[in-house]
Write a protein that binds this DNA or RNA. Structure first.
Lengths: 200, 200
DNA sequence: CCGGCAATTGACCGGTCGACCAGTTAATTA
DNA sequence: TAATTAACTGGTCGACCGGTCAATTGCCGG
């Protein structure tokens, strides 16, 4: 006979967070009810309140957890793409694009956070962007990239282009002549890298 | 003494649409109540149902109206920036950026639509993007822009970079070394235009 | 092995939501 | 001007929301 699962508050919290993440990211925090989260995570509504206090606190915990995992993944990616110079930049764009491609929920989570003017997401990746900008500055000083562009803006440009590509995918899919993920990435990289080449 | 306002269903509809637009764009469709919209537009809740049927239908009407006005404004802008060649492209980016700068609600309305997977926004500007892409194609054939890039992707790149700049403004504001609207626009234009210059 | 505490449950509460409806008023038309 | 239609109002309903609470269960240190 199936025993009732042994008590494991950490696992319970994790299960609630996981179910809540899925629902929140998919439907938005306002449209999800505590009852849905309870049903999806296999616990009682009261238990969610016991562990997280309120719906808003749960949503905050979900975002904090999500942003943390995002930042950790990106940091690992940035350190893995360690080849210096312009190859590093091209690799970074490629890795960032692939990351969003494989984690569509991340784009949506950021979008929800932006719409509700939650700037806590900035804390998650500010240090990461600073690190990336530093690498670009080094490449500029080495003469590999043109040096009349703010390094942080270099990061911002490719982050914006890639992120919004996935956020507005269904929208832009209706534009005449639009290509696939791969074709867009290829074209963007051409323009981006050529635009950053040292000036003659 | 103040007469009760003469009946004017068109004006009433317009007032409801305007109030609903503001509230929906600011808080998102799920967070806004019919009672709020009624209070903000100075009519009864029942009257909104009379004119629009349901909350969802009202939100659809708001989006449709918003997208239409957006597309009309953009079309006017595109036709105004009629100088051919690479100047046209630079002007288009500039005008698009300024448009979003002056209409922050548009960015948010598109973001809400994207998050709820409403692809009706694509119908609004598909023709417009097609027109822009055609101009770029002509510039490519004239040798003013490099011709190994999908023209639609050229549009997409600058639309993404500009739109997400405003959508994630509060987020990116926390990034170290980030600049102002003007500084970002300048840097983006440098990279973008240089990246699209004909190859040697 | 027992006493305390956290994990967990189900019933329940006040409040608010979107929608509906019967009734009233003003414009339109025949 | 009588009749018809559409604009508009106030009141109300059932559903469902987030949150609370007393009671129960299982773990774990003394």
């Amino acid at each position: 006979m199936s025993q009732p699962a042994a008590r494991d508050p950490d696992l319970t919290r994790a299960r609630i967070l996981e179910a809540a993440l899925d629902l929140f990211v998919e439907q938005g925090p306002a449209a999800v009810t505590m009852r849905e989260i309870a049903a999806a995570s296999g616990v009682t509504k009261s238990l969610i309140h016991h562990h997280f206090g309120s719906k808003e606190a749960l949503w905050s915990a979900v975002k904090e957890d999500g942003f943390l995992r995002y930042a950790q993944g990106q940091r690992a990616d940035l350190e893995a793409a360690s080849a210096p110079g312009s190859e590093l930049l091209e690799n970074s764009v490629l890795r960032y694009f692939r990351f969003l491609q494989q984690h569509p929920g991340v784009v949506r989570m950021f979008a929800w956070a932006h719409l509700e003017k939650d700037d806590s997401c900035g804390e998650a990746d500010a240090a990461l962007v600073g690190l990336g900008a530093q690498r670009i500055r080094e490449a500029q000083q080495a003469g590999v990239l043109r040096d009349d562009i703010n390094p942080t803006h270099v990061v911002t440009i490719f982050v914006n282009a890639c992120t919004y590509w996935f956020e507005a995918r269904a929208h832009h899919a209706q534009w005449p002549g639009i290509g696939s993920d791969e074709e867009f990435l290829e074209d963007f990289l051409k323009v981006f890298m050529a635009g950053l080449a040292p000036r003659p």
